[in-house]
Design a protein around this nucleic acid. Structure first.
Lengths: 219, 219, 219, 219
DNA sequence: CATGAATGAGGTTTCATTCAT
DNA sequence: GATGAATGAAACCTCATTCAT
């Protein structure tokens, strides 16, 4: 029981290093094996192929992120129609968003190396478009919100790509954090700004009057 | 003089197809040559290596985009300190931004195939991070703007990553357009929403009161 | 006592399938083991190597065929010298042959899958030339017959390869049946024609006058 | 012009040796290249893959055999209905057959090594069933002959597999020659016996009376 | 200007088999 | 009886690039 666990660990450790340095495509299994002090046969005993080896490294964190996203988005779907504007711009607006985004951020920072591997070195693997999966989850959320707003503001309409963009942008904001900000505490400050930013952007398109009315205050 | 031009064109045409289908790394020069009806030697007469062949395809459009960005950002720098808030949230705010973004968008759509090649298939080439170049240009703009705002609102401060994020996001908004929206007219509508979005996001972080004051209108 | 028998059976069943699908050489022991729900170690506990596994499948039927051939050929050797022409072309000629060939055919059809495995999928194994063994048995029979005919027709002579060819052909006729004819009853009809064919061919070479004299009957 | 021809020849020479010794499947391209004093890249410049290398060795002789077979079979189809029995059992019967078979035999012996390679070492390559192609050609011939005989002897009928068997056997007779008889002159003697044999076999099944009438002559 | 032969290292994957447990 | 981890060699093939002609 000890032996095989050790071998897997050794392979994964060497694999992480190699994938991280060269990216999925340019990484060499031969190199991984020799770095791990293991034969290629051993690698193929534990992993079906290169792709599965790569996925084995990041599968856990992918699943974690996914489940936190699903969980939070499920909560959000339940906000009653009459409350959603309050949730958007009322007192305490963004509280829920912050909880969700900071939870996800926290998970990502707890496994920052793996997340960076996944986000920046996966091209060529079956996970190269994993971000799209997160974006899809996020999209569902914004589509629901769009529907609610359409009912509340029947005379407004937005580009059909806009909701998808915002979903996209929310995810990219997280990607930006993990790839550009080393320190988790700084990332959290950034995230709280991001809530304002995303909400402000969203509202500016749906309810542009919100700004214009206030010009005088700043002149 | 005719012949070599022909050969170059044939190679580039085949190269575009191959790079577009497989991405830079998986593209095969052998395939490009045989598709072009040309020998490997010919290719290497005109292009130093695989990377230069790839770059030759997109260099033109990269330069165009860069120069339009530079031009516009130069204009923006010249806005007098006292006018910049007006430019941000006043009557006619965003006009300049729209001109710049729509100019860039227009160039991109005029060469959409090449831009898609550059943005989605360059990994492994020396242009794999070309977007960062655009982001850097954009960043300079927002840093200047940040400075101005810091002076105007001395008691505000934002995360040090925030300006960079917004620069980043402005570029990503364009990338999103070109990669997700086929029709240029639709893209333009999207872009005009995007101006509101970006400006709204930016202001929401710098001047969060802009919203709060208006809550009552929507309750 | 039950368990190991089961394991062997499971392995053999999976082995048959794999060998039949891919042929001896391309068959994978790994696949066989996983199909059988057994580890490689188990396989190697019961079978020395790949070859022995293959042979274990067909050994039984090979032995059966061999013994039936030996038995019948022994009978044939005992035909008295003065009777052999009668046996060849007299009333009731071919009766013994039919019995022998139909017995062998019967055995083969009773184990058609295994025989097909042996005849068409054995290349690379130690049984790849098993047909030659049957041909050798058959050859002995025809050599004896040749000797008898040489004595009876001292002024005739045939190519030294001819007797071997006929032995060869007799076996190939059976191989043809099992590999081309699915239904045993049809195979038996084919076999009875084959007796005429083989005997006619044999006589035509040794006693060509048999035909020439009869031309007029068919003109 | 000298160089590439030389390289191809060297590769083919080494390939022939390796394929002949180990058979297609077990042959190693590495070994072939190192024996030929050439890199694997060079091999793959001239040959698409292992299969094409193998085929390049034997393609010529396959085509030759095929064309001789086609030519002769075309002649045979033209024999008038009233003459075909004469051609089968009359004075000079078998002359045409002998010409055809000896022509083919001649070609095969002129390239005996390649033919042996093709017939005994091709398993795994795309030519592993090339004999079936020859049998198919032969089958067409015998099917035509069967039709003619059916009209001439309306009350006779044979197993539906019989014509195919005879076509099969005619080809196998040639295969036997090339694989068992080293000397071409001896092969020719064998072939002339084979004509008698095949014709005798064929007639014995269609016109069994041909023999029975003559028994008395040999008692 | 262009050919096309040749390099040589490297790629991933599969294999039959062994052996300590 | 049976496990399953590990071996290690070898498999076919592709690649970007070079260079004499």
């Amino acid at each position: 029981m000890k032996k095989n666990t050790d071998t897997i660990k050794k392979i994964q450790k060497a694999a992480f290093k190699e994938f991280f340095e060269k990216g999925y495509m340019k990484a060499s299994l031969r190199k991984i094996c020799s770095d791990a002090g293991v034969t290629t046969g051993a690698l193929y005993f534990f992993f079906k192929d290169k792709d599965e080896l790569f996925c084995s490294l990041v599968r856990g964190v992918v699943d974690e992120i996914k489940s936190v996203m699903l969980e939070h988005f499920a909560l959000e779907q339940n906000i009653k129609e009459k409350d959603f504007i309050e949730a958007l711009i009322g007192e305490g607006a963004g509280k829920e968003d912050f909880k969700a985004l900071s939870d996800i951020t926290d998970i990502m920072y707890k496994n920052r190396d793996l997340v960076l591997l996944l986000l920046t070195k996966a091209q060529g693997s079956s996970l190269e478009n994993v971000v799209d999966v997160f974006i899809d989850l996020s999209t569902k959320q914004y589509e629901t919100l769009s529907d609610k707003m359409s009912k509340a503001f029947p005379n407004k309409s937005i580009s059909k790509y806009f909701a998808h963009w915002v979903a996209h942008d929310q995810v990219q904001a997280l990607v930006y954090a993990i790839t550009h900000i080393e320190n988790e505490d700084e990332a959290m400050i950034y995230i709280s700004n991001m809530i304002l930013y995303l909400r402000g952007g969203w509202c500016s398109v749906w309810i542009p009057e919100a700004f214009k009315n206030n010009i005088d205050n700043f002149k």
